[in-house]
Design a protein around this nucleic acid. Structure first.
Lengths: 202, 202
DNA sequence: CAACATAAGTTTCTCCTGTAAACATGGAGG
DNA sequence: CCTCCATGTTTACAGGAGAAACTTATGTTG
C-alpha cells in the first residue's frame, strides 16, 4: 500500500508504466498492432509523453523484446534446474518451456524475432538474446561432458537445436502445428527425432 | 510487343502490376514497411486504385504470401528433381533451397510467416502453404519407402524437419546464424544433426 | 449505332499514427 | 525562496488506411 505511488521523479515511473502497459497489451491481444499512442492512452498520459523515455517507437519495441529474452531465459533456466534429471530430459524440458512461453506470449515472442527488434541496433537486446542462447550452449556442453550427446562441434548442435525449437515455436504460434498435417504430440515427436541424432546411445 | 498493353478492361492489368511492384519492393528493401499508397504510387496510379482489386492492405499481403509459397515450392521441387541423388541428398538440397530462398527474399519470407498473412483468413493462402509442406511429406514418404529414413510417424518427422528448416531460415534472416556463436557451415552441420536422427543407418 | 450499365480509376474526406517543437509544472539544489 | 531541469502537455504537421462520391472507358443491348 505504501508503494502505490513510488514515483522517483516528478510524476511517476512512467518508463516502467509504459513498458508494463505495452507488455500487458502484447499479452492480451493475439496480434496486436503496436501503436505508441495507444500505449500512452492506456497508461493515462499524453501521446507525446513516451518520447521523454524512448527516442522512438522502435526503442520501446526493442526494450520489450529485451525483456522477453530475459523472461524466456528465466523460464528455461527454471525448467532445467527444477529436476535432477538426465541431460536429455532437461533438454526436452527446456525446449517445452520455450515453446510454452511462445504459445503463452505469441505477440512478445513474435516481436523478439521480428525485424522491429533489430539486434544490431541495441547492444542490450543483443546481449539478452545471446544470454538466452547461452543456456542452450551450456546444456549441450554438459551433455557432451557426461557423454549423453555426440561429440560433434557444439556450434552445429546448437544451431540445430536452436533452429528446431525456435521453428517449432514459430509454427506453433502460426497454428501450423497441432493441426491436420501433424500428429497429436508434434512437439514431443519432433524433439525425439532431433534427439535421435543428438544422443549417443539410442 | 503486341502484348505491351494487354489490358483486359479499361486501363490495365492493375492487379498484376500492383503485385509485381509490391514483390519488387519487397525484394529490394530488406525490411520494407509496407504501405499500400507507396505501392500505388510506384505503380503510377492513385492511392485508392488498389482498393478496386484488394479489399484492404492485408488482402494484398496475403496474396503476396501465397505467391511466396508457390515460388518456394517451385525452387524446392527444382532442387529435389534435379539430381538422381539419394533421398538424403535430396533432403539436404531441398532444405538448402528453402534457406537460400529465405536469404534471397527475406522480406517475402518473413511476410509468409508473419501474422499479417493470416492463413485462416484465406483458403488460397492456406492451400499454397500446405502444398509446399506436401513436398516435404512426399520426400519423407519416399525416404521411408526405400528405408533411408526411420519408420517413425511421418507427422513427427515432418514437424521436426519443417521446424528445423524453417527455424534455420528465420535465424539466418535475422543474422543470428553465420555469426560468433555458430560455426562456419551451420546449415550443413545442423542438418547433419537432424539427419542423424532421421536416417536409418549412420 | 447510340444509350447505357458497369468495372476501374481519381478526388476528396475523415480518422489515426509517429514525431517534432513550443509550452507548462513541480520538485530538488543553491 | 527562487530558479533550473526533467518530466510532462498542447499544438502542429506529414503521412497512411480506408470510405464515399465522382469520372471515364468499355462491352452489351435495343
Amino acid at each position: 500500500m505504501s508503494e502505490t505511488k513510488d514515483r522517483p521523479y516528478h510524476h511517476g515511473d512512467l518508463r516502467r508504466a509504459l513498458i508494463d502497459t505495452a507488455l500487458a497489451m502484447l499479452a492480451a491481444d493475439q496480434n496486436w498492432t503496436f501503436t505508441l499512442r495507444e500505449v500512452a492512452r492506456r497508461t493515462g498520459v499524453s501521446h507525446a509523453a513516451p518520447y521523454k523515455h524512448f527516442r522512438d517507437r522502435e526503442m520501446l519495441l526493442r526494450e520489450l523484446a529485451r525483456i522477453g529474452f530475459v523472461r524466456l531465459g528465466e523460464v528455461m533456466t527454471a525448467a532445467l534446474s527444477s529436476d535432477s534429471a538426465s541431460v536429455r530430459e532437461k533438454f526436452v524440458a527446456g525446449a517445452e518451456a520455450c515453446i510454452d512461453f511462445a504459445l503463452k506470449n505469441p505477440g512478445l515472442y513474435r516481436l523478439m524475432f521480428s525485424a522491429d527488434a533489430d539486434k544490431s541496433a541495441d547492444p542490450a537486446l543483443h546481449d539478452a538474446a545471446m544470454g538466452t542462447f547461452g543456456i542452450l550452449l551450456r546444456l549441450l556442453e554438459d551433455g557432451q561432458r557426461d557423454c549423453s550427446f555426440q561429440p560433434v562441434a557444439i556450434s552445429a548442435q546448437a544451431a540445430a537445436c536452436w533452429a528446431q525449437v525456435h521453428g517449432l515455436a514459430m509454427l506453433a504460434i502460426s497454428g501450423q502445428l497441432l493441426e491436420e498435417k501433424v500428429g497429436k504430440e508434434p512437439v514431443q515427436a519432433a524433439l525425439n527425432v532431433l534427439l535421435e541424432g543428438l544422443c549417443r546411445e539410442k
